[in-house]
């Protein structure tokens, strides 16, 4: 097959995978931010059962999300979020003030990972 055709197909695949990964990341980030907000709200004004349920839902989603993200994002940043998620239950159990701060921190981390993948001028430069 003509080299130019093979390269055209390859470029199309690369473009499709790149755009697809950004769309996937955007959607899943939106979902995970909703879960983090739910944990924060439960921590601020919910019952311990609500907090437990929301953290479990967040952890469950994160497991799948981690695998998907590890294909396109350095695992170092993802591991930091995993460590922070693991701290949520003990922090809530000890009524630590850090619980909400940790939730906000995780939220920002997730946002930064998503923002880092978007092809904005400052990211490219």
């Amino acid at each position: 097959m003509n080299r130019a055709v093979v390269c055209g197909v390859l470029m199309a695949v690369i473009a499709a995978v790149s755009v697809g990964s950004v769309v996937m990341l955007d959607r899943s980030t939106e979902h995970i931010l909703g879960l983090i907000d739910a944990v924060t709200e439960a921590g601020e004004s919910g019952t311990p059962e609500e907090v437990e349920d929301t953290i479990a839902a967040l952890e469950d989603y994160w497991r799948g999300h981690y695998i998907r993200l590890s294909v396109i994002v350095q695992t170092g940043a993802l591991n930091d979020i995993s460590y922070a998620l693991a701290k949520l239950r003990p922090l809530y159990a000890h009524n630590a003030d850090d619980f909400i701060a940790e939730c906000r921190g995780i939220r920002r981390w997730v946002e930064l990972i998503c923002e880092g993948q978007l092809p904005r001028v400052y990211s490219v430069l």
């Binding site: 080299r3 055209g8 390859l10 470029m11 690369i14 995978v17 396109i72 994002v73 350095q74 695992t75």
Partner: peptide, 21 residues
């Protein structure tokens, strides 16, 4: 190993395709 392999594959093939074009 913390860098996804796709981060190496995508630029390599992008360079090669650009060179062929």
């Amino acid at each position: 190993v913390s860098i996804p392999m796709i981060m190496g594959v995508v630029p390599i093939f992008t360079f090669v395709c650009l060179d062929v074009f």
